[in-house]
């Protein structure tokens, strides 16, 4: 998808307006980063998420997602982790136009668990990325999206 200048300006205006409302209500100390949620490539999204930290593939994060999704508009996903220093869990779908689906900042009062339901455009790898103090941990799983629930 091509983003032209006009459209970019328009969307950034909308996003900054949203940012202002957020400040007014002082609802959250973290602002919604428009840059993270624009249509972009998977690599660019990962770069933004990792913030220069090294990434380690680990089996200490559990990504529970069906291997075959009958309906790509509704795929339940649960991420749990036995790692201690997790402050941030993100879910990224490689083939989506906007790869980043959710980024959750979890305070120490919460266990490292996040459940949600994703939209997946086409068969793709789904990544769960947990950000620790110095490194990021990741796990990926392939999800096949079948239309009509047959074969594929």
């Amino acid at each position: 998808m091509k983003v032209n200048r006009r459209k970019f300006l328009k969307t950034s205006l909308v996003y900054s307006a949203a940012g202002l409302t957020l400040l007014e209500t002082s609802l959250a100390n973290a602002e919604w980063l428009a840059a993270d949620f624009v249509p972009s490539s998977f690599d660019a999204t990962m770069k933004q998420l990792l913030k220069g930290k090294p990434i380690i593939e680990t089996d200490k994060i559990d990504l529970n997602i069906p291997e075959i999704a009958e309906n790509g508009a509704l795929v339940p996903v649960t991420v749990t982790s036995s790692l201690k220093d997790i402050k941030n869990i993100a879910i990224v779908v490689e083939q989506n136009p906007v790869p980043l689906a959710i980024q959750a900042m979890l305070m120490p009062e919460l266990e490292s668990l996040l459940s949600a339901r994703l939209k997946i455009a086409s068969s793709s790898f789904v990544f769960a990325i947990a950000e620790g103090e110095k490194v990021c941990y990741s796990i990926k799983k392939k999800v096949k999206v079948t239309i009509g629930g047959c074969g594929g």
Partner: peptide, 14 residues
Amino acid sequence: KTIATCNIGAGISK
């Protein structure tokens, strides 16, 4: 006390 802040994109279901 805020315990979770989620930034959400349109990749989450209806």
